[in-house]
């Protein structure tokens, strides 16, 4: 770990000096610093800011402070009642200890678990731009089938972010240039030719909260992993579904561990809206989304996996 100076942030628009990075729960950042993959010169601790509240919004929605710990979020009565997909997703991630540390903001901004990225001695376009992507010909069983590029096929590893994506979450940001907000999907950049650029935040912009709109349908999250717990997803599906008289009136679907960002399945949603809530339409919807998949040697199974999961989760909800 390279040495750094440490200070605590005192205001939301504090900003960041050059070479500085925000520190929240530290469960990803400190990990990467030890690995030599992250090398901030200044750490600005944001956990002392008053961002750890979950509050009701006037439209019946919910505002989740960026500093709310994952475990508190999952256990929040309103999250449990109105947004079970979110509670389930958070509880499917990491471990009890890590969830006590990890924050909402940090979870959204965690980096990929690509095994080459996590090892500073390996080539990797993301941590050392221009050094190449060994994953394409090497180990990519758990990397992207959607949204990748020839430069990078990393997946975003978060569970929580997949649920938030399906819930149409809006990110609140504050920085020296003022406050702004945007849909969660706009937080992430696809790798293209610049896989080291991952987020749309300007330097010094702080995530202050995530807003959830009110009035969702029934929702669920299902995660698949290589052991029963304490493992990142190899595939996951978050779904919010409203069915009236056997017909899908509204559906929001997001996939995890298959793309560089939590993957909103717009094509699948499009294919499903107004259709009968049957297994056949669920599978057809999944196929509509997965038609764009570009699997490599070892990750084609994710197509079958996501397809099956979509059908199974939606069947469970309808």
């Amino acid at each position: 770990m390279k040495t750094f100076t440490y200070r605590t942030a005192t205001a939301l628009d504090d900003g960041l000096e050059p070479g500085a990075t925000f520190l929240a729960g530290g469960t990803n950042l400190v990990d990467l610093m030890k690995l030599g993959v992250a090398t901030p010169e200044v750490l600005v601790d944001v956990t002392k800011l008053p961002l750890d509240e979950v509050t009701d919004l006037p439209d019946g929605g919910l505002r989740i402070g960026a500093g709310v710990r994952n475990s508190d979020l999952a256990a929040h009565p309103r999250v449990r009642r109105d947004y079970p997909v979110l509670s389930q997703a958070v509880l499917a991630g990491a471990s009890g200890q890590l969830r006590n540390m990890a924050t909402t903001g940090g979870n959204l901004l965690q980096r990929t678990r690509c095994r080459y990225f996590m090892d500073a001695t390996m080539p990797c376009n993301k941590h050392s731009p221009g050094s190449g992507c060994p994953a394409r010909s090497g180990d990519h069983r758990n990397l992207a089938i959607l949204g990748g590029s020839s430069s990078c096929i990393a997946t975003h590893p978060s569970d929580m972010a997949v649920a938030l994506t399906a819930l149409d979450a809006v990110v609140q940001v504050s920085g020296p240039a003022g406050a702004r907000s945007f849909p969660l999907g706009d937080l992430y950049l696809l790798p293209g030719e610049t896989p080291h650029r991952e987020f749309t935040l300007e330097h010094g912009e702080l995530i202050t909260a995530v807003d959830l709109p009110g009035g969702s349908g029934s929702s669920a999250y299902r995660k698949v992993r290589d052991r029963a717990s304490y493992a990142f997803a190899v595939g996951s599906v978050a779904a919010v579904l409203t069915v009236a008289e056997g017909t899908v009136t509204d559906v929001r679907l997001a996939f995890g561990a298959v793309a560089p960002k939590p993957w909103r399945a717009h094509a699948a949603e499009e294919a499903l809206r107004g259709r009968p809530a049957t297994r056949e339409s669920f599978l057809a919807a999944a196929d509509a989304e997965l038609a764009a998949a570009e699997p490599l040697r070892d990750n084609a199974f994710k197509i079958t996996l996501i397809r099956n999961l979509v059908a199974s989760v939606l069947e469970g909800l309808s």
């Binding site: 678990r113 180990d139 052991r227 304490y230 493992a231 990142f232």
Partner: peptide, 25 residues
């Protein structure tokens, strides 16, 4: 141990990626 012959080693060299059974298993 997941071998990548191009880099000449097992790439899953930690306890998050080399999976041993957990309580839940």
């Amino acid at each position: 141990g997941v071998l990548d012959p191009n880099v000449g080693t097992w790439v899953n060299h930690d306890l998050a990626e080399y999976h041993v059974p957990t309580h839940a298993d």
